[in-house]
Nucleic acid binder design. Structure first.
Lengths: 203, 203
DNA sequence: AAATAAAACTAACCCTCGGTAACTTATATT
DNA sequence: AATATAAGTTACCGAGGGTTAGTTTTATTT
């Protein structure tokens, strides 16, 4: 991810550094919380001064937004990977939602759900909406697919169903804490099963 | 709510003022956002100085927490009122979840869902957990009641079902924006219906 | 009524931290 | 070589959370 290809032009180096700043900030925000991490701390860890960061980000909030986007990108990737399997739409959906829960209960991902848009205010709302909408679209599509292939109930409405399913799944990100007795994989399995309970076709 | 009974002792006046501060802060936080409201603004509106506030709250974050608690209290009250009706458990649950959505999509309540614990960090976690847990308990109880009276499916697990239902319902608080085309009452009705879809008994 | 303790409040200040400006150094380009 | 541009640094500003010392108000004691 944080690499460049070919000859390192100035533009490539600039982008490489920007991504490295985002990676470093993501770690610290995730571990210590956005408002507990001064820009000086991030700069220090990277061996530069705070002012240098402003060549790469417009503001601290912009940096948060870039962290959010990068995190969502990873999450979407992992969900897409889980979905890229043979089987019925119901099975794909199940795998996708489990991957979703697993990804978002990772230590460095949890803060994304605390600073969810529109809490993230800077920049174009376009970008920040995109990943979440993409997920929503993916879920709706596989729901429609499930109606078509018979693995999901024929009477479900993809729009409303995706609302409920994503709600249940995202809710995990809010209440999940490391201390809990349940393992992440268990939670992913059980919550997903419950969230899809009313939608899988009876066979 | 913001009243005292009997002779105004110093302790009563102290608590009255504290509640008035919380009320004022809730309004401003809700309208302008927590980090956009300096303590000076709240103090000015109350006709005192910032330092005076520190007789009533430990920190700005503590003030936020008190706003959160007060808001949750109102929400729980409104849900309890909705639930206090005759009818099957399924009907009670339906009314309760609609009231829940209506309450939390109110303008001055939305910020509560952006600054949800454990984002609110100060003070004892006991208090801040209580209202949310109470809601969870109420839902589980009415779910069990529904299994007993036959208005809900016999094979549902109250613990898991409450997770999914509350997830779907709370999710509304995240994505709901005023601009949307749908009216709040419509959203409350439709989302609740969908969230309970898999749980109501087929008759 | 006078003395005194305690609470309520203010004015003035400190400190952290996001953000900026002026200036210097490195790296391309012509 | 000359010069434009990007990258970084030092030094600073201002907003705002929080504190402290001291003053006014209110209640209690003798």
């Amino acid at each position: 991810m944080t690499e460049i290809t070919g000859f390192p032009t100035r533009a490539k180096l600039h982008d490489l550094k920007r991504r490295e700043i985002v990676r470093c900030a993501s770690e610290k925000f995730g571990a210590e919380g956005y408002e507990n991490v001064p820009l000086d701390a991030i700069a220090a860890e990277l061996g530069v001064t705070k002012a240098a960061l402003y060549n790469y980000v417009k503001s601290k909030n912009d940096l948060l937004m870039q962290c959010y986007e990068a995190g969502m990108e990873r999450l979407v990737t992992s969900v897409e990977a889980a979905m890229d399997r043979s089987g019925s739409a119901a099975e794909k959906l199940d795998a996708a939602m489990q991957a979703y829960i697993l990804a978002m209960t990772q230590k460095d991902m949890q803060y994304l759900w605390r600073y969810t848009p529109p809490f993230v205010t800077s920049g174009s709302n376009r970008g920040e909406q995109r990943s979440r909408d993409r997920l929503d679209t993916m879920v709706r599509e596989v729901l429609a697919e499930g109606v078509a292939d018979g693995s999901l109930r024929a009477d479900l409405d993809p729009k409303m169903a995706s609302l409920v399913i994503l709600g249940a799944v995202n809710w995990v990100g809010i209440w999940y804490r490391d201390e809990g007795a349940m393992k992440r994989a268990e939670i992913a399995r059980d919550v997903t099963k419950e969230a899809l309970r009313g939608y899988v076709a009876v066979r």
